[in-house]
């Protein structure tokens, strides 16, 4: 979350900076994964930066988001400490989940980030439930569910929006339409890829925006938030974007070169940077300074994470419940037993 609204020059520069930070974070993640420093599965956000930054720039400290398996971008955009994110990715005790979550489950409840989620579509019902809390509290806050277009076919997303609409909840359902569900192009698995059409079915507003344009995303989500706060219930925002990397790092699932080139020509960071320079809101030198600052911050974050300690093995038994778990202790004791 950035402090200044995108209507201001400060806000626009901050948004650019945030997008650069998302990308540099993911580039490092890619390298660390390739080098074997990150175990497990990793899904990168590179290409979609304008969506996370534009959407979260509308949020306040009492708002909440739910994220996806491709969640690093949402986390950085929400202002999560990159060092603790790298620590979680690198299986260290200083990670946000103390090593229990990894890439697909980074969460920071204090920052309003209700978790990345390894199951496609599962964040939408959870954000809807956060919407109930907000409605009952009457605290002028909203919940925002990020999900990819692959989740649009999930029954639970349909259930969540139906519920959010029936109960007039302050929720924003944000479809990151990156054109591929895992390795499958949207056209292969949907007859209608114009997801904005779904709004009429639910009886709620829906809008398609250029997901490579951070201001466009920001404005649409701002409007959705405004409606939610005025008691008008949920909205759908469809952001058309693209991811530059395969579904998951290490997969041999390259994207078509021509399609990739088309989207890279419209790259969210490059076009917005050029726009700000053209408008005189930023100089090339200032942009270099921003990049240098981010590079230094992220290098230090990686180093701090790398030097951290892994969790102690016995922590595997903790946090299953909020109270002592007698069954777990019982089985654990039996596993360690060396005689009858």
């Amino acid at each position: 979350m950035i402090d200044s609204p995108l209507e201001t020059e400060d806000g626009r520069v901050a948004a650019l900076e945030s997008m650069v930070k998302l990308r540099r974070f993911e580039e490092r993640t890619s390298n660390l994964f390739a080098d074997g420093e990150i175990p497990g599965f990793v899904h990168l956000y590179i290409g979609q930066e304008a969506v996370a930054v534009g959407a979260t720039s509308t949020l306040d400290s009492n708002d909440h988001i739910t994220s996806t398996h491709r969640g690093h971008g949402h986390c950085v955009a929400m202002g999560l400490d990159p060092s603790r994110m790298f620590a979680e990715l690198m299986a260290k005790d200083d990670g946000f989940c103390r090593g229990k979550g990894g890439s697909m489950h980074i969460a920071d409840v204090n920052a309003g980030m209700l978790g990345a989620n390894g199951v496609v579509g599962s964040g939408a019902p959870i954000a809807t439930g956060a919407g109930v809390t907000k409605k009952l509290a009457g605290d002028d806050s909203v919940a925002l569910a990020f999900y990819g277009e692959g989740a649009v076919s999930e029954g639970q997303v349909h259930e969540a929006i139906t519920l959010g609409a029936a109960w007039d909840l302050p929720v924003i359902y944000l479809v990151e339409k990156n054109n591929y569900a895992e390795g499958m192009p949207a056209e292969r698995i949907f007859r209608n890829t114009d997801f904005e059409d779904f709004g009429d079915a639910y009886g709620i507003p829906a809008e398609t925006v250029d997901g490579m344009d951070v201001v466009d995303v920001y404005e649409a989500v701002s409007d959705a938030k405004q409606r939610a706060l005025e008691g008008e219930g949920p909205s759908i925002v469809v952001a058309e974007t693209f991811r530059y990397n395969p579904h998951s790092e290490g997969l041999d699932m390259p994207l078509p070169e021509e399609e990739l080139e088309y989207w890279k020509d419209r790259d969210a960071i490059e076009t917005f940077k050029d726009e700000l320079i053209e408008q005189g809101e930023l100089t090339a030198e200032q942009f270099e300074e921003i990049e240098d600052r981010i590079e230094a911050e992220l290098d230090e974050a990686v180093e701090r994470a790398r030097n951290g300690e892994p969790p102690e093995p016995e922590q595997a038994y903790e946090d299953v419940f909020t109270e002592p778990a007698p069954d777990i202790e019982y089985h654990r004791a039996n596993l360690g037993r060396d005689q009858l």
Binding site: I126, G129, E159
Partner: peptide
């Protein structure tokens, strides 16, 4: 009706909403 809510027939959706509501204070 705010505290005792009739839900649409969407069990996965409204259990999930229960999770989200519980995680945020209800």
């Amino acid at each position: 009706a705010e505290r005792v809510r009739d839900a649409p027939l969407a069990e996965n959706g409204f259990v999930g909403a229960g999770v989200g509501a519980a995680a945020t204070g209800l």
